[in-house]
Every structure is written in C-alpha cells, then in structure tokens.
C-alpha cells in the first residue's frame, strides 16, 4: 500500500472512469476561468496602451516592454539606450533571492540530513516542527522579523547583552535585512525536499565508501551529495522562485533603496499614478523567468529519473 503511494499512483485505478470528465469539470472550469484566463488577459494587457488614471485603453502598443528595457529620453524622440532602472531592480531581485537561497541551503541541508537520519518513528515529528512556521501568516512573520531586527529590538539587545557589540547595529532597511527575511520566510521549503531525498538514500553506499577508507566528509560530498542532488535542486527552486517575486520582505524590511520586482509591480496598480500595461509587462517578465526555471528543472528531474531506472 505504501509502495503504491510512493511510486506515484500504482494504487490508482479506473473505478470511476466513466464519470471522470464530470468529476474534473468543476476544477477545469473554475481554474480555467479564474486562473488561466486571467493570466492570458494579463498578457493581453501588457500589449495595451495605458490610461492615465489607472486601467487601459484598448489599443495595441509595445510601449510597456519598451519602457522596461529602453530609455528614449524625456520626450521619447532620442535614440534608444538601454534603460537600466528596471533591469537593475530585476537583477537585485535575482541577487537577493540567490543570497537567501544560499543561506537557506547552508542551514537547511544539515537540518534535513539530521532529520532523515533519526529513527524512523521520530522523523514525522521533526518534519512537523519544521512545517508549523510555514503555516503561520507570512505577514505576521515578516512584521515580527522587522520588530526583532530593529535598532532597539531583541536581536540588538541580546548582542549587546552578551557583550558581542557595544552599539546597536542597523540591519533594517539594508539588503541583508531583506535576505534574512526571505531566508526566514521560505526556509521550510528548503528542508522538506532535501529531507525526502536523503530519507530515500541507501546508506549502505556510504558504508561501502567508509569500508574503503573514505572519510565522512568525502563520503558526504562524493557519494551522498550526487545521489540527493534532485532534492537539493528542488529545495533551491522552492526558495528562489517565491523569493524573487516576494513583496512583503522587501517592502517591510528593505525600505525604498532596496526595491524588488514585487514592489515595482505592486506600485503600478495602487492609486492613480499606476501604469497597468507596464505592471502587466513586468509581471510577464517575472512569470517567463519562473516558467523557464521550472522547465529546466522538470527536464533535469526527468533525466535524473531515467538514470535511476
């Protein structure tokens, strides 16, 4: 029974084959109308002309993408130069997400390994402990992070209390604060897939390596790590992707200088100053990048599975 679930549904049968389409219909209709069509509408909007008080005029235009990538001067008549403002914001989002991912990997991998090597009965409890914080409201967690990192917050109090520093260090409104916030928000996503692959790993391979006098660290790096690589990559993607489009951590922890793509998008839809087609275009750029990352990942996973079987 457990084996059926693990191998991806050999317990699946065709008992309700005739009713299949009717059973799926509500999901198809609902997600089609309220998720798929909206994403297509967004693509359409990114090619429309902006209306000055928010919203759009139904005229085809590539102005939104042009504004994202090119600078044509104040009146739009100068030769096109590359517009660095938005590319910089995009680049910062990638960089911040990458830093958060590395932090999460540094803490998440040892944690996942430790949990996967506990006695089998103890593991679900550990996994549960890791997942609880994920289900707590992200806004509350980010606000709490802001509170902790303040100049007069608990973190500085503790650091001064134990004599590590004399004056409070300002962390809020720096890139590092955003990285910490993203790292903290998505840390459980790093632990879970790595845990799943280390748990499946056959430790007799490591024993064989040890019998041939490989040290623990060599065994970890050369034997275990290649075997659990898909889990590590999955964890990195699960942290990187939501970090890149994140809005709360840069907004609450980063301040105005540390703008990320999420804030750029949000700004286009607030109040009357917004530019809807531009916001839609920026969302499309973000979405395309995420889909490319996911596609490369899916191809790699398929290849890895073929190698195993």
């Amino acid at each position: 029974m457990a084996g059926g679930a693990a191998s991806g549904g050999s317990a699946s049968t065709d008992t309700y084959k005739e009713a299949r389409n009717w059973l799926l219909l509500p999901a198809w209709v609902y997600l089609g109308v309220f998720v798929l069509i909206p994403v297509i509408m967004m693509l359409v909007y990114s090619f429309l002309t902006k209306e000055f008080r928010g919203g759009v005029v139904w005229e085809f235009s590539t102005a939104a993408y042009d504004q994202f990538f090119f600078d044509r001067g104040l009146f739009g008549d100068e030769p096109a130069k590359i517009e660095w403002t938005y590319i910089t914001i995009f680049w910062r989002s990638i960089w911040q997400a990458a830093a958060a991912t590395l932090l999460a990997l540094a803490i998440g991998f040892p944690t996942a390994y430790f949990i996967a090597t506990r006695p089998e009965r103890a593991r679900p409890m550990w996994v549960f402990l890791i997942t609880i914080p994920y289900w707590v409201n992200l806004l509350i967690r980010t606000v709490s992070m802001k509170f902790m990192l303040r100049d007069t917050g608990p973190l500085n109090d503790v650091l001064i209390g134990i004599g590590l520093i004399n004056d409070p260090i300002s962390i809020i409104n720096t890139n590092f604060a955003v990285q910490l916030g993203l790292f903290y928000s998505y840390l459980p996503f790093m632990v879970l897939p790595i845990y799943a692959s280390v748990e499946r790993y056959n430790f007799s391979l490591s024993e064989a390596a040890a019998d041939l006098y490989a040290s623990k660290w060599v065994t970890l790096r050369r034997i275990l790590l290649p075997a659990v690589k898909p889990g590590v990559i999955a964890g990195c993607i699960l942290v990187f992707v939501p970090s890149m489009g994140s809005f709360l951590a840069p907004d609450l922890l980063g301040g105005a200088k540390n703008f990320m793509i999420g804030s750029l998008i949000e700004e286009q839809f607030k109040g009357n100053a917004g530019n809807w087609p531009f916001g839609a275009a920026a969302s499309m750029v973000l979405l395309s990048m995420v889909l490319i990352i996911l596609m490369i990942f899916a191809r790699q996973q398929a290849k890895a599975e073929k190698e195993v079987s």
Partner: peptide, 16 residues
C-alpha cells in the same frame, strides 16, 4: 496557482 508567483496571480486576477 502554486507555480505562478503570488504577485503575478494577484495582478492577473485584478486585471480579469
């Protein structure tokens, strides 16, 4: 809904 970044889903829904 899990694969599309949340902010993108938010924009798409608003536009819809």
């Amino acid at each position: 809904p899990l694969m599309v970044p949340e902010i993108v889903l938010a924009v798409a829904t608003l536009i819809f």
